[in-house]
Amino acid sequence: MGLKEDLLKLKEEAKKLIEEAKDKNSLDKIKVKFLGKKGEIKQVLKSLGKLSPEERKDIGKVANRIKEEIEGLLKDKLAYIKRIELERELRENRIDITLPSHWIETGHQHLITKTLQEVVDIFISMGFSVAEGPEIEREDYNFDMLNIPKDHPARDMQDTFFINKDGYVLRTHTSPVQIRTMLTEKPPIAIVAPGRVYRKDMDPTHTPMFHQIEGLLVDRNITYRDLKGTLQKFLQEVFGKDTRIRLRPSYFPFTEPSFEVDISCSMCDGEGCRVCKGAGWLEILGSGMVDPNVFEAVGINPEEYSGFAFGLGVERIVMLKYRIPDIRLFYYGDMRFIKQF
């Protein structure tokens, strides 16, 4: 008697050793010690010959079960040790996640083009297309065809840069794009024309180059009410849903009637503050119904078609929106400024 007990004893011994094992190496040794060719279980089974066939069968079964049990314990323990080792390795390579990052720092878009895109995109969503024209413009497109004849005081409103090329000037507004569009396309016309314009002026609120966006809608039955509706929708998109607008009759040679468009001051909501100089309103753009003289100049019948046009200064909108005190900051390319936005 005693073989069975010996085997069970071996199992208990193995179990204990496996529990105590700390690494794969010890587990290998335990494996060899108990399950190897010359292992302890084999040793026990050597004395099997002395037993009867029934006993042999019985003991053999017990031995196999114990062998499997030990194998199972070894496998589980090995998996456990591997996990622990991996964990240790990962922890060793841990990173201080608060370290400063490194990657290409995304560039900054200029506020002017950013705002320009915002405005143009609003009009695109309304169905307008984008039109372009050169910055060195024919004098007649810039003035005469827009109903600004020579020697008219209206030419004083825009101090023009002249160049060494007869009949051309630096465009003083984006309005000549209206002329170019109407000369090449038939109504209905719905365009916005963003771009640089030039006037001889330089102080904290004027630079000799700045940006405008021109808009033009020509079709049958376009009225003042459409102008008001379109501008209201646009200005509410830019300055917020609660923005109120005011159209003040004014004068531009290429529109009749003409309007200065004001928005309720976003700083004080019309109460009057420093930004709006107490007026409660901010002048934001010029607009009007296309003057019949302009239609005639481009060969569109003013009895059949009507339309509205508007022009806004991008810098002014940016300065209001981002509270920028000096327009010249836009053009130095100073990274301390550019990277603020």
């Binding site: 695109i124 169905g127 307008f128 209905p188 719905a190 079709d219 009225t223 459409d226 379109t230 209201q232």
Partner: peptide, 9 residues
């Protein structure tokens, strides 16, 4: 105000 019908661009 009213809103014009603008041809699809």
């Amino acid at each position: 105000e009213s809103f014009p019908s603008i041809p699809i661009n």
